[in-house]
């Protein structure tokens, strides 16, 4: 049972990480790409971590996994926020068009 849950969690998580990578490549501009780099990537890492915690089950490992998850939830949106803010301020200083960042 645990093996099944672990497999589902890890495979779904890895698939989400893959989708995030494809999204960063495929979406049209920096800000849209940040959507892909935050949400699916964060959930993907969370699922892989849940899989690891389920499979291992030792308290020491679960504590570390919880720490990784907490830091991920703090840093991923903050990083996206910083990139987004830089692009936003850079483009809105000149004009309201977001296209100049396309293809950067």
């Amino acid at each position: 049972m645990i093996d099944v849950l672990t497999s589902i969690a890890v495979i779904t998580g890895a698939a989400l990480a893959l989708v995030a990578a494809i999204g960063v490549h495929r979406l049209p501009d920096v800000l849209s790409r940040m959507h892909a780099a935050t949400k699916p990537a964060t959930l993907g890492i969370l699922l892989v971590l849940i899989g690891v915690a389920l499979r291992d089950g030792r308290l020491a490992v679960i504590a570390k996994v919880a720490l990784v998850a907490a830091l991920q939830f703090l840093t991923a949106p903050t990083g996206a926020h910083m990139v987004g803010r830089a692009v936003h301020r850079d483009t809105t200083e000149h004009d309201d068009d977001l296209d100049p960042v396309d293809g950067v």
Binding site: P28, H35, K39
Partner: peptide, 23 residues
């Protein structure tokens, strides 16, 4: 987060993208 990931995943993999990004 789950809903957001599913939405973005679909937006990424759907063949013809109909995104309307705004601020």
């Amino acid at each position: 987060l789950v809903r957001a990931s599913a939405t973005v995943a679909w937006q990424v993999i759907r063949p013809r993208s109909r995104l309307r990004p705004t601020v």
